[in-house]
Design a protein around this nucleic acid. Structure first.
Lengths: 335, 335
DNA sequence: TAAGTGTATTGAAACGTTTAGATTGAATTT
DNA sequence: AAATTCAATCTAAACGTTTCAATACACTTA
């Protein structure tokens, strides 16, 4: 593959002049510029970003490590991070850790070895999240997005999951529901944990029992679905269901369909997220909407601010508001 | 940041020995191995992949350039590519070109400059797809996925879009429908083009008129939705709708909901793809399912085969079968 | 004991850039 | 005409690895 050396030879100039023409760093006469540009075409030169990065000590890239892109919230975040970073002249390296901590570590190492300017990470929920370990691995500024412990020792962006869940469940309670089931994903993820905490607080505060009503580890639509089958076939089935994330909501809807239970008449439903499907089905599903786009763009903003900062700055935590969208999937309980 | 030189100094050995310990390329005595490993910890050494890539002439990475990840089919492909490549020891660099050709070119250049071993690209549909230009930019073996011209001068993986659409529309015709609307996205994408061609063939073959019934450029749910509003409020509205991709199907469903038109009684619907929502709504939507996972893994396979090939091999084209899943969204037309 | 064999370790030259500082030579000043 | 200035160009030294070829050293073997 052609190098600057080849271009220089073909143009009859020095390697430094070629570099100057390509990067427009110093003035080069019109004639040499012409000759260099011709030579570039002639030899089919394509810059070697690897060499450039080595010399410069960094790659103009942001590493983005996330646990999956089938969750529409993560997909939206990734998409936003991508386009925001681009506006600022950075490429984005998306690594999909598939909720697997080992894979996440591998990616962390690999990403870090490519010397990006910074990272944005939505931690995998396979085990306890260790921000210090991440810091050690990645070695550059980074932002923890969405799944961040309250005392995260890094910039972080979250929503108030506890509060959002608390309010959503209270809404169901205010409609008269007493048996409310909850479908959640990984107990190690801070988001899931907080949402379940919010659910429990709301229930306990109203003196309602939750035994047997919480199903964790329902990380796929199928698992959520079978959890609903179990829940609804118990001797005292819930009259309302609360999904702590998108796939759980989808699982609930599909399960109720299969069980021929009508929503909201027979079962009321609230879901976190609620991607496209929540607005497609009839009735639309009442949801807790997360500001995924805003979270993504704020992540980029915080990261770049820190990278550009001349003096040390303390860790910042942004807690963005969720939106509770009442649609048609909840009905008052007469009993 | 600590380098091998620092490690070598701390361990009292040469740089070559450090490299040997790290890469296990040659035998190093137990004692030195120990000293080197201690030194690595001591100085906090993290390998510089950039330097390594420069020396090795390539980065153990596959560049994956696609037009978006909100389309569930693309998301699934990306996810599969990621995990398959990983199994083979490659990282994946996902670049989201957002259906923008200029951005795609930028990514192509950037990706290529990072010297990946190969690329997998789902071309943006913003304008005519030029595989030769892609080849020139990227300079390494690559596979064109999904949106590939019949005579693509590269390995390519597609489904028979024409045939799938033809059959789907014929199914509607066989149910007695005569006014069938089609909602499509970018006219420049080969997939959309072929699906519309299939639709037109089926219609023409049965002597049915298509004037005013085809809506292209409905690339978002919203646009698809308003196309349906227009279509259904025309003086002679269709009795069936055919969506050539996921978002169009979603737009149709939402629009019909809003218009209070019942599916399938008042309007029959078939959609390509049909992500989660198609199985969530009642009735489930009859769909043309693409083998996205298989397409992703085959893409990786073809790419790696070509990379590992010792002698030149001609371009291969895989055409994978689609699946026509009859669900409840189509009804016979009595009139 | 001298020569030969084999293994563990090292020195140094790349890989393809960027860039500080040196060099050149023409234009301007004295 | 010599000295000065200035812009355009070039030389060469990094950046942090990998790896070939060279070295050193301890064993065998004749």
């Amino acid at each position: 593959m052609a190098t600057m050396r080849d271009v220089a030879k073909a143009a009859g100039v020095s390697i430094a002049t070629v570099s100057a023409v390509i990067n427009k760093t110093t003035k080069v006469s019109a004639e040499l510029t012409q000759r260099v540009n011709d030579a570039i075409k002639e030899v089919g030169y394509r810059p070697n970003g690897v060499a450039r990065s080595l010399k410069m000590g960094a790659t103009p890239t942001i590493a983005c490590i996330l646990p999956g892109i089938t969750n529409p919230v993560f997909a939206e975040m990734a998409q936003t991070i991508e386009s925001e970073a681009n506006k600022k002249g950075y490429a984005v390296f998306v690594c999909n850790a598939l909720e697997d901590n080992a894979l996440q570590d591998k990616y962390l190492q690999f990403a870090s070895s490519m010397r990006p300017v910074g990272g944005i990470i939505i931690p995998a929920a396979g085990s306890e999240i260790d921000v210090e370990a991440i810091q050690r691995e990645i070695g550059v500024p980074f932002v923890v997005l969405d799944r961040a412990a309250p005392d995260t020792k890094a910039d972080s962006i979250v929503v108030d999951n506890y509060d959002a869940a608390f309010n959503a469940v209270n809404y169901l309670i205010s409609l008269g529901h007493k048996r409310i089931g909850a479908i959640a994903s990984f107990p190690y993820s801070f988001t899931s944990r907080d949402r379940i905490r919010g659910y429990r607080s709301a229930m306990e505060q109203s003196g309602l029992d939750t035994t047997g009503l919480v199903r964790e580890n329902c990380s796929t639509v199928e698992r959520a679905q079978s959890a609903v089958f179990e829940l609804m076939s118990s001797q005292n089935p819930p009259t309302a269901l609360f999904a702590t994330f998108d796939h759980a909501g989808l699982g609930i809807v599909k399960a109720l369909n299969r069980l021929d239970l009508r929503m909201p008449d027979e079962v009321s439903v609230i879901t976190f997220d609620g991607g496209a499907w929540a607005e497609a089905i009839n009735p639309n599903v009442t949801s807790v909407r997360q500001p995924a786009t805003q979270m993504g763009s704020e992540a980029v903003r915080l990261l770049l601010e820190r990278i550009d900062a001349t003096e040390p700055m303390s860790h910042r935590r942004l807690m963005l508001p969720t939106e509770f969208i009442v649609r048609g999937s909840c009905a008052p309980l007469f009993s």
